[in-house]
Amino acid sequence: MSTTPFVVAADQSFPRLVAEALRGNDSQPGLAQLEAAAEHIRASRRAFAAWLRDLAADDTAVAEIAKRSYWHPNGFAKIVLHTGVEPEFRIRLHVWPRSETPSDGESNPHSHRWEFASHVLTGTGMHMVEFAETAEGGRPYQRYRYGTDPANPAALVADGEVRLKRRGVPHVQSGDVYTCDTSIVHTVRPIDAGLTATVVVQGPRRTPTTVVYCEPGESDDQPNVDLTEADFGKLVSELLVSLDREVAP
């Protein structure tokens, strides 16, 4: 797989270059193309930082990004920087701000309706636990379906009690690329309490619903919180300081 850095021309935007990495024989990128795009972002950190700086300076872009982004209930930001149509993809930025203790991250085991590849842009890295349903052993969970209620697509709909067992504990270090398909059920959290950010290249939706698991007694009412334009500006400013330090000659 080639990891040749992008050369950013004046008439090409960074998302257009990511789209080029995604294009193959199919207009809908698969996991291999998503991984290639994430690898290109890893090889083009300076260009990504420049694009991020341009976005933060554009009031219209900031307003649009804030509308489609939010704070996860566990205190990290899920930011949609770009949406593409042909090929269909999204560039997302997940940011865990500095804190006194490590974030719980996405602590409920869950799967995704789409495949993705992510790159640890800054921070020590990510700790993940992958799960599988089992008839014996493991721990009990309440299973929910996400995306089944047309009136409220974000609602969690109860789908029975199951048991989950651990099947793997992958660690993704700073600078690494991680891929995930729709069959993976996992939890994700930053390794430490420092500023941590990942760039996610998300492919097209493959399934209408996905699963989320909650421990017995845990509430399924875990609403997201709006991300403001000021939030975006603060997070990007802190991230750029970190990136500038890392890519300085």
Rank of each mutant, 00 (worst) to 15 (best):
M126Y: 15
M126G: 00
R113D: 09
P87V: 03
G84T: 01
G84M: 02
F131W: 07
V120Y: 06
H127P: 03
F131P: 01
S111Y: 09
L121P: 02
T134V: 12
L93M: 07
P102Y: 13
G84R: 03
G105R: 04
H119Y: 15
E86C: 04
W114K: 02
E86H: 13
T83Y: 00
S118G: 12
F131T: 00
H119L: 14
I91L: 13
T101W: 13
T101F: 08
V95C: 03
R90Y: 04
G138Q: 06
N108G: 08
M128G: 05
T122V: 10
T124M: 07
A135F: 02
T122K: 05
I91V: 11
N108L: 13
W114S: 12
G105K: 05
H127Q: 15
S103R: 06
E133Y: 09
E100L: 14
S103G: 05
E106S: 11
V85T: 14
F89E: 02
L121R: 09
I91A: 09
H119W: 15
E130P: 03
W96V: 00
G137L: 01
G125A: 06
W96H: 00
I91F: 07
L121V: 11
R139G: 06
P140E: 12
E130N: 07
E88T: 08
V120L: 10
W114Y: 14
V120H: 00
M126V: 07
H127R: 15
E130C: 12
G105S: 13
M128F: 05
T101Q: 15
H94A: 10
H94Q: 10
V85W: 07
R92E: 11
I91N: 03
T83C: 05
A135G: 05
V120S: 04
F131E: 02
M126H: 04
E130A: 09
V95D: 02
R139L: 13
W114V: 08
S103W: 08
V95K: 03
H119Q: 11
P109S: 09
G137S: 04
H110W: 01
S111P: 06
R90K: 07
F89C: 12
D104T: 14
M128H: 14
P109K: 10
P140T: 01
G123P: 03
S99L: 09
E115L: 07
L93A: 03
S107Y: 13
T83M: 05
R113E: 10
M128I: 01
E86W: 10
P87C: 02
R113Q: 13
R139C: 04
V129E: 05
E100H: 12
